[in-house]
């Protein structure tokens, strides 16, 4: 799916003394089969606009050949939505009482047919690292990270083209982060999916994003590829990760080392440089 934001603005609470400007005249393109990062306040609005849960206040959003404007009419919205999947952080209101029926409901709503439904559900759970034991558990009783994984299993179960995640990596330990980074890379490279990461923690984007966008005061202030991680202007808006901080300090001291986001590469580089 080709996604195009065309001079899109989104304002909420126009009817208050302090209307909230989420996006102001934003234009950008997202090509299928890429991993894109977005950073900013209230960044979940990107997901809500893409899933057409909220309409643009001005401008338009093009999803393949469907144009979404404030007043455009869309027949059978689920035909469009089933190509996309979205997870909001901190809104874990599940619609059923057990994990199995949660995934079943999503598959049914988005018309995903498969010969062996039960096997498909178990596979979806396996992909996110949950065992069969989770099938009859109440998702509302699970821990924060387990809830996120169940939601991701729901999302993957109907095989969408575009996957949008807000703060997915929050609360995950190192092994899980590595696992999901590899999973997203595989989804992109092998299945040509688009992954959109909405997060302030750019260490999760290291090594996997093709493109990075920073939204500040409703405008896109930075848009670049993975080289952006070492640009100082990025850190006007977010906190500098330790590895970047360290590398920059070493460079400032006059030692010419290359810029890496992986600690193993950094160590080899330091070794080469010191010897």
């Amino acid at each position: 799916m080709e996604i195009v934001f065309n001079k899109l603005s989104y304002v909420e609470n126009k009817m208050s003394s302090s209307p909230k400007n989420y996006l102001d005249n934003v234009s950008l393109e997202i090509k299928q089969g890429s991993i894109i990062g977005f950073i900013g306040e209230n960044i979940s609005i990107i997901g809500k606009l893409l899933m057409v849960i909220k309409r643009p206040s001005k401008g338009e959003l093009k999803l393949d050949n469907i144009v979404v404007k404030r007043t455009s009419h869309i027949n059978n919205i689920n035909l469009l939505r089933k190509k996309m999947a979205f997870m909001i952080d901190d809104n874990f209101n599940f619609i059923t009482d057990n994990v199995k029926s949660e995934i079943e409901t999503v598959m049914k709503n988005y018309n995903y047919h498969t010969k062996d439904v039960n096997k498909h559900i178990v596979d979806s759970l396996k992909i996110v690292g949950l065992s069969e034991d989770y099938l009859d558990r109440d998702p509302n009783e699970l821990s924060y990270t387990e809830k996120k994984k169940v939601n991701l299993a729901c999302m993957l179960s109907y095989n969408p083209e575009v996957i949008i995640l807000e703060n997915f990596e929050k609360g995950l330990i190192a092994r899980e982060r590595t696992y999901f980074k590899n999973l997203f890379l595989k989804l992109k490279n092998k299945f040509n999916k688009t992954i959109i990461l909405l997060t302030k923690d750019i260490t999760f984007m290291f090594g996997i994003v093709d493109n990075l966008n920073v939204i500040n005061n409703a405008k896109i202030v930075i848009s670049g590829d993975a080289d952006t991680f070492y640009e100082n202007k990025l850190y006007k808006y977010i906190e500098m990760p330790k590895i970047v901080e360290f590398t920059k300090y070493v460079q400032e001291q006059g030692h010419n080392i290359l810029e890496y986001v992986d600690i193993k590469e950094l160590i080899k580089e330091i070794y080469r440089n010191v010897k």
Binding site: I77, N78, I88, N91, N93, I95, T105, V106, K108, N109
Partner: peptide, 16 residues
């Protein structure tokens, strides 16, 4: 309200 949004994302259409 939260459940309506969460349900909409999972395919129970509300806004449309």
């Amino acid at each position: 309200g939260d459940t309506l949004i969460s349900g909409e994302i999972k395919g129970n259409v509300y806004t449309h």
